[in-house]
């Protein structure tokens, strides 16, 4: 089966965020593959191992996003496409339009991505791609089986989980718990450099910037106000616990 994995390069979750000239300072920030996308790539590879086929990784980002793509190739993906939108001024709409266009040029039975990215956390790109390609989508999937033209997916719903059946092709988004992503193997790292990595721009997809222009405009960036450290309640554990209960009742008036 042919599987497309959508990946995004994000800031390392440990990254310290600072502002420079009113924007996020990207200097010295280490970049990683979005962890939820790692689940997606892993699931794609598992399906390929079980059913045969190939995995194509598609990303939208600057040239440096090559690193995330190489990681996916080193994990075992077969080929990849990186679309550089040529501007940093993009939103989920932009990304989804580009991804959908890039994917529409491929053969696919399944499209899989992380359910959200840890940087902007917006959880909407894969869903938008499904809508553009007129495909059904199942979000926040923690278990996936593919069998004879359909997928059975267990997904998080309000207050529990649901087992959904969906015909292929479909879009699936990965939630934590779906799998344990493999580490790229040393051999995989060596092989990754020989695998196709197509770097293209909007015009290669027949798109112009106005067709994918962002709908959202960011007005300002700021850092959250630091939470002032509160007080440490002194005393032996039992004593402190009693004092804490009292403080929550009388001072914070919260219980």
């Amino acid at each position: 089966m042919k599987i497309v994995a959508l990946v995004k390069q994000t800031f390392d979750s440990e990254a310290k965020i600072a502002l420079e000239g009113g924007k996020i300072n990207r200097q010295g920030i280490s970049l990683i593959m979005n962890p939820y996308d790692e689940y997606a790539v892993e699931e794609a590879l598992k399906l390929k191992e079980k059913h045969g086929g190939e995995v194509t990784v598609v990303t939208v980002g600057p040239d440096e996003a090559t690193e995330a793509v190489r990681q996916a190739l080193a994990m075992g993906a077969d080929q990849s496409i990186l679309v550089n939108p040529g501007t940093e001024d993009i939103d989920e709409y932009t990304t989804a339009k580009i991804l959908a266009k890039a994917v529409s040029g491929l053969e696919y039975d399944l499209i899989i991505g992380g359910f959200r990215a840890i940087d902007d956390g917006s959880a909407q790109v894969a869903g938008r791609v499904a809508e553009i390609l007129n495909l059904p989508v199942v979000n926040m999937v923690t278990k996936l089986e593919v069998d004879g033209g359909k997928a059975i997916a267990t997904s998080d719903i309000e207050g529990g989980s649901a087992v959904m059946e969906v015909p292929l092709p479909a879009v699936i988004t990965a939630q934590k718990g779906l799998n344990e992503p493999r580490y790229p193997s040393m051999k995989g790292i060596m092989q990754a450099k020989k695998k196709p990595l197509k770097k293209i721009g909007l015009s290669d997809l027949g798109l112009d910037a106005s067709q994918v222009a962002a709908k959202v405009k960011v007005l300002s960036y700021s850092l959250p106000p630091a939470r002032a450290a509160g007080k440490i309640i002194p005393g032996e554990p039992a004593e402190a616990a009693a004092a804490l209960a009292k403080a929550l009742r009388e001072e914070a008036k919260i219980i």
């Binding site: 309640i233 009693a242 209960a245 929550l248 914070a252 219980i255």
Partner: peptide, 28 residues
């Protein structure tokens, strides 16, 4: 965590939690 906490208790949670539960029960 203490940097973000409004109230902190430095101590063994196995000693703190049961007392806290009892104290809150009394208050309530």
């Amino acid at each position: 965590i203490f940097k973000s906490a409004d109230y902190g208790v430095v101590g063994d949670l196995f000693e703190v939690l049961p007392v806290l539960t009892q104290e809150i029960k009394k208050l309530k």
